[in-house]
Design a protein around this nucleic acid. Structure first.
Length: 390
DNA sequence: ATGCATGAGAT
DNA sequence: TCTCATGCATA
């Protein structure tokens, strides 16, 4: 059954959110990965894998890696490296497009600044390594590192400890081509349980919205009634920027906004994380996601500004930090491995399970880590493509 | 701000 | 097994 995804749909469903306290990432890599780090004549990224892979079927191609062995793999990397080099020359802009992960920019507003420092191509590697503009973002150690922080920190995390408020609102999840949308959320009240910010309280204490229901807007959008106005990338970009400025003017942080959303009491709309708000502002969400979130954030903004007028102070409720929580460990893929993965991705963005396993073994990474990396890479690429054509 | 991860729903 | 929205952890 199709699950509507927009808030308007009002679909509430249960899900096991990623913030479930008990979850503990197993993707923790030990020091074994530390060894072997050099050896890959790797390449850099590429923005359009299909272009370079037109000789093999993107999906069930079982050859490139079928005989996975160092020779073939290295070759794939080398091939990718060459192609990537070509592409970079043809589309110098792409290099910068990667700067902030993937962006939604489409040529409006501030043009993507590009370091475009012509790499003196003394050797192939140099030429293929746009590290100056993208890899740099990740101060990677040459060794995979997994850090673990146990300290409990701020109110930000505490909300996740609420017993069962775990949810997962997938606003904007669209089936490509379809107009259905939906949203799910549960325990509307749980999310904001631990407010610790005075500003937040002052502004959202009685957070109920007025007349404009973003839910309706979303419904309309979902119905395709005024697609241009709400789905135009330019419009979204403009809104995102306005949103950020006004948000800052209100003195509210991204995390605050995320939490405040739950106070809007919009059906199917709960809190969001700082990450998501940040991504919305920086246009690093998918197009559909942007469209779905816009009416919600717009509602918040309007409500927040409205309340800001009738200034009212209110001592806030200190948040209690639930002690002793397991924090998941984040895998960190070292630069060399990452380069290899990028090379593989260049020739085959969708490796089969077996290939993934082979790659994982070769790079000494866990299979799941590799699988997820490919998934994330595909997501990125998709956004990039969209951004590139808009 | 962003890398790696999860999980629901779609294929 | 993938896609998509989203989050935790961290640079």
């Amino acid at each position: 059954m199709t699950m509507p995804v927009y808030p308007s749909a009002d679909k509430m469903k249960m899900s096991t959110p990623s913030c479930f306290p008990g979850r503990y990432s197993p993707t923790y890599r030990g020091p074994e990965q530390m060894r072997r780090c050099m050896a890959n004549p790797s390449s850099r990224f590429l923005e359009d894998a299909s272009l370079m892979c037109n000789s093999w079927s993107p999906r069930h191609n079982g050859d490139i890696f079928s005989g996975l062995n160092d020779g073939i793999l290295s070759r794939a990397e080398a091939l990718a490296a060459v192609d990537i080099g070509k592409h970079q020359n043809n589309h110098p802009q792409m290099a910068t497009q990667l700067k902030h992960d993937v962006m939604y920019h489409h040529g409006m507003g501030a043009p993507p600044q590009r370091p475009l420092q012509m790499h003196h191509t003394m050797d192939g590697i140099d030429m293929l390594d746009p590290s100056g503009s993208m890899t740099t973002l990740t101060p990677m150690a040459e060794t995979p590192i997994t850090t673990s922080h146990h300290q409990l920190h701020g109110s930000y995390h505490s909300m996740n400890h609420m017993m069962s408020h775990h949810h997962s609102s997938h606003l904007g999840n669209h089936t490509p081509g379809s107009t259905d949308a939906g949203a799910d959320r549960e325990h509307p009240g749980a999310a904001g349980s631990c407010v610790s910010n005075a500003t937040y309280n002052a502004i959202f204490a009685d957070g109920f919205l007025g007349a404009h229901h973003p839910a309706m807007a979303a419904a309309v959008a979902a119905a395709g009634l005024h697609p241009d106005t709400d789905t135009d990338p330019r419009e979204l970009e403009a809104f995102a920027e306005r949103f950020k400025q006004r948000r800052i003017k209100l003195g509210v942080t991204q995390a605050d906004v995320g939490k405040a959303l739950a106070n809007l009491k919009l059906p199917g709309v709960g809190a969001l994380s700082q990450s998501t708000i940040c991504r919305f502002e920086s246009l690093t969400l998918s197009h559909n996601n942007m469209i779905a979130l816009k009416p919600i954030l717009q509602a918040w903004l309007e409500e927040a500004e409205a309340q800001a007028k009738n200034k009212r102070r209110d001592p806030d409720a200190p948040s209690v930090l639930p002690a002793g929580e397991k924090k998941r460990k984040r895998t960190s893929i070292a630069a060399p491995e990452k380069r290899s993965l990028e090379a593989y991705f260049a020739v085959q963005p969708r490796p089969s399970g077996e290939k993934i396993a082979a790659i994982a073994e070769k790079l000494d990474l866990k299979k799941n880590v590799v699988r997820v990396w490919f998934c994330n890479q595909r997501q990125k690429q998709k956004r990039m493509k969209f951004a590139a054509q808009h």
